[in-house]
Design a protein around this nucleic acid. Structure first.
Length: 862
DNA sequence: CTCTCCCT
């Protein structure tokens, strides 16, 4: 241990922490930082009477670090060095170094924000930037600044940009430790053409088998790609000595072990792995790494509130970490299936978990801490607003937060359970119902991988899984299509949930468990501690409660049948299950897992819910709303009252009487949507509007009459005339002229008749209508003979606008258009006269029209 | 024939 590189920098680090409250240690993997650093501080004066807390991102790492440090001290675990993790704790009075996993640190900080006797808090593998590490650091920094000035914080990291963390912590010292890995040669080997991934990967494996010696580790994004590549390699002619070993998280322990273990003498091992082999597991004997440069990651979609899996390029940091796996014991080689140019475009680091995960749990932890706005704390990367708001909204729905966003007693119990808030809420409600053991099984089923395999997965009914689990618990044989290893994990997790629930349940049994708006329950009241003790996994199970329990966890995914296999969810989305399932006949279901499709999600897991259960247990969220609305079928305003649960219409009746105001409001909205054409624009009304437009063009204080303006002001001018109307047909009775005139004051009305008259009386005595269709150039169409004697063009707009005269023949054929009558009489008239005389010889066409007598006769004079 | 990885 003395020759580890870390030993050379520890004196400096010890020196720094004597005067600094925080430091950053950058050390490559293999430097020994995890096990050498904590004990180095045990004899520091500032740590006297205090202990060291070190955070590890994985249980395995935490346990083995504690074992290794204990062995170095010649002790067993739980003496000077111990660990704490869920369902497994080894510490004693003498323990001064405690290695903890992530959830434990959060719970410790929440139950004692001053961190009791902890003198040094170490974040190991901080570059992984897990949600809990980021949260832990934010909480610890506040604890340090408010409660514990003497608390020291050490950030340990491999590839992290140390300066950024140092700056974030206020410019604390950074210690850099050289690594102790062997050199690895990097070969960029981009695939030619657009080959499927499994072909690229298997070609690279064949190349590496030929060019290199030793075992090969191939990184692929997921299980599907691993299986396809394995098939591809099995079909190609590989040397007999080659063995293929898949490796991913869901694989059984035995198969994982056989992938990790050293190959048998004379064999060459090719391990096909997900990113599990990047940090979590070390594989013996690997000297060649092949990296496809892809990983699968979960992205939370705030739009739908659902998680979604995406295949994305790895970061440079990840790629380097993967490459490093070839140089653990000897110099190695790494093939990267991308080009050097592509490499430059890769992101430096992986996106921190806090940036793309569901933040409901984070929101709950912050509320327990007393913080509603994340900005109140310091973050390396602040939680993004949309997922945080979505999380807070869910917490309010579950009764964990009150209307002001403060934590409720129920919320505190939920946080103490340490499950996802949805699951925690379900467990606590189940406790009240006496259905805790069933809820624990559901919680485990939801948290773990589906135990069904193959075609069995097509039936999304969770009840079938529960039944299968119960058979497994009674060691009864199950039909095919079920994975016993998965059921074993689920059984273990169910028990853990029950134990956790009983601890939290009895701690809070003396005061109300749940939300303030909790309604009274018909079946068993809250459990007393003694009944809690009797609850066990062997209690009888009532399968009819599965849907109800799920509905506590997913109140936003209660589905109402609307078609074959299709459901509307209470949160507003549509979702469907694949055809032919018994569950599709249920009127109500709860969808526990829905994929993240834009229009219609696919239901992966669900259970039936009885309407009576829904009405009884979700009464708080059921609203009765009277609604006045437009019914397109009858084209009229109708009223109904609806019983709603979120977006679901549970019941609808159409009996109540809307008030006139409500009707008018809906009518106005429909007119605005459908446009003004639904109103009776008779000729005179149309002219009135055009006259008003003409006036508006001249005078700004007149109302604007465009479609847009009229629709914008319907409230003002039309509303008073809608009384008693309910349908499109009724609108034909609107006294539109009166309504339009109503927009004018008394003066304007006088002025309208004077300056934009409907008719002009011409010399013959006829009243000729003015055409205002073009409001900037009104037209007066009149027979030429009727204008004899009039010198000048008739004027409108108070003498400002000359009409456009359309002078007509006796048969009302247009002969001439002019806005200057005087000049017409002087010149053009004589040409027109010749023409007219030819065609209408018996009419009177005087040589001096200004002296002639005008006539409105259509027949020639005798 | 949907399913990266961890953790309270």
């Amino acid at each position: 241990m003395d020759n580890l590189p870390i030993m050379q920098v520890l004196p400096e680090l010890i020196h720094i922490l004597r005067s600094s409250r925080a430091a950053v240690l950058i050390a490559e993997p293999g430097a020994g930082k995890t096990t050498a650093t904590p004990p180095a501080f045990l004899n520091e004066p500032w740590l006297e009477g205090k202990s060291i807390l070190m955070l590890e991102p994985r249980r395995l790492a935490a346990r083995s670090a504690a074992v290794f440090m204990s062995a170095a001290l010649g002790e067993s675990v739980g003496q000077t060095v111990g660990y704490r993790m869920r369902m497994d704790t080894k510490v004693s009075k003498n323990t001064r170094i405690v290695v903890v996993t992530e959830g434990v640190l959060t719970r410790m900080l929440q139950s004692d924000p001053s961190l009791g006797d902890v003198g040094l808090l170490i974040f190991d593998e901080f570059h992984e930037r897990s949600l809990h590490a980021d949260l832990g650091l934010a909480l610890a920094l506040e604890a340090q600044s408010v409660l514990r000035e003497d608390l020291r914080i050490l950030i340990m990291s491999a590839t992290l940009d140390g300066d950024r963390v140092s700056d974030f912590l206020g410019g604390v010292p950074v210690v850099d430790c050289p690594g102790r890995t062997y050199p690895v040669e990097t070969i960029y080997a981009p695939a030619s053409g657009n080959l499927p991934l499994e072909k690229q990967a298997s070609a690279a494996v064949r190349r590496a088998l030929a060019e290199q010696s030793g075992d090969i580790l191939l990184f692929l994004p997921g299980e599907r790609e691993i299986r396809r590549t394995q098939r591809e390699l099995e079909l190609s002619m590989l040397p007999d000595s080659t063995v293929l070993r898949p490796l991913y998280g869901q694989l059984s322990q035995e198969l994982q072990n056989s992938a990790v273990a050293a190959a048998v003498q004379g064999q060459r091992k090719v391990v096909l792995a997900t990113s599990i082999a990047e940090t979590s597991l070390t594989i013996q004997g690997v000297s060649t790494v092949i990296d496809t440069g892809l990983r699968r990651t979960q992205v939370f979609s705030p739009r739908t509130g659902m998680p979604r899996l995406e295949t994305v390029p790895v970061s440079k940091a990840s790629a380097d970490q993967r490459r490093g796996r070839a140089g653990r014991t000897a110099p190695g080689v790494c093939y990267r299936l991308w080009s050097q140019e592509e490499h430059h475009r890769l992101p430096e680091d992986n996106v921190p978990e806090i940036m793309e995960t569901d933040l409901a749990q984070l929101a709950l932890e912050l509320a327990v801490w007393g913080v509603r706005d994340p900005a109140a704390l310091q973050w390396l990367d602040a939680p993004p607003a949309a997922p945080f708001a979505q999380g807070a909204a869910l917490l309010r729905q579950l009764g964990a937060l009150d209307a002001r966003g403060a934590i409720t007693p129920h919320g505190r119990s939920m946080a103490a359970l340490g499950a996802h808030p949805r699951v925690a809420h379900m467990l606590l409600r189940a406790l009240e119902l006496g259905a805790a053991p069933l809820a624990c099984r559901l919680a485990a089923l939801l948290g773990e991988r589906d135990p069904f395999r193959g075609p069995a997965t097509l039936d999304c009914d969770l009840t079938l899984r529960v039944e299968s689990l119960l058979r497994y618990e009674h060691s009864a044989a199950d039909a095919g299509g079920v994975d016993p290893a998965a059921l074993r994990v689920i059984q273990r997790e169910s028990r853990n949930f029950l134990q956790q629930l009983l601890t939290v349940g009895s701690a809070t049994a003396t005061h109300p468990l749940s939300s303030p708006e909790r309604h009274s329950l018909s079946s068993p009241e809250r459990q007393s501690p003694s009944t809690l003790d009797r609850l066990s996994m062997s209690s009888p199970v009532d399968l009819s409660l599965i849907g109800l329990l799920l509905s506590f966890a997913y109140p936003d995914r209660i589905g109402q049948k609307r078609g074959e296999g299709a459901f509307v969810l209470s949160g507003g989305r549509g979702a469907a299950m694949s055809k032919g399932q018994p569950l599709e006949r249920s009127h109500y279901i709860v969808a526990a897992a829905v994929d993240d499709k834009v229009t219609q999600g696919k239901i992966m897991l669900a259970a039936a819910l009885e309407e009576t259960q829904l009405l009884e247990y979700h009464a708080d969220n059921i609203t009765e709303a009277a609604e006045v609305y437009w019914d397109p079928e009858s084209s009229s305003v109708k009223a109904r009252s609806r019983t709603m649960l979120g977006s679901l219409v549970l019941k609808e009746t159409s009996h109540n009487r809307p008030t006139p105001e409500e009707i008018e409001e809906v009518l106005l909205k429909v007119i605005a949507e459908k446009g003004l054409d639904v109103l009776p624009w008779e000729k005179g009304v149309q002219q009135l509007r055009q006259r008003m437009m003409f006036m508006h063009a001249l005078r700004k204080d007149w109302p604007e009459m465009s479609d847009e303006a009229l629709i914008g002001s319907l409230d003002m001018w039309l509303k008073p005339f809608l009384q008693g109307m309910r349908s499109l047909r009724d609108l034909n009775r609107v006294p539109l002229s009166r309504a339009l005139e109503g927009m004018l004051n008394w003066n304007q009305r006088q002025m309208l008749d004077k300056e934009a008259p409907t008719h002009i009386t011409v010399p013959s005595g006829s009243r000729v209508p003015v055409d205002y269709e073009n409001p900037s150039a009104p037209v007066l169409a009149v027979r030429l003979q009727e204008m004899f004697g009039q010198v000048n063009t008739p004027m409108l707009g108070g003498g400002r606008i000359a009409v456009v005269l359309h002078l007509l023949s006796p048969a009302r054929r247009p002969m001439q258009v002019t806005s200057d009558l005087a000049s017409f009489w002087r010149s053009t008239y004589f040409e027109v006269k010749k023409d007219l005389k030819g065609r209408y010889p018996k009419h009177y066409w005087p040589d001096d029209p200004l002296q002639a007598i005008p006539t409105n006769r259509t027949r020639p004079v005798k």
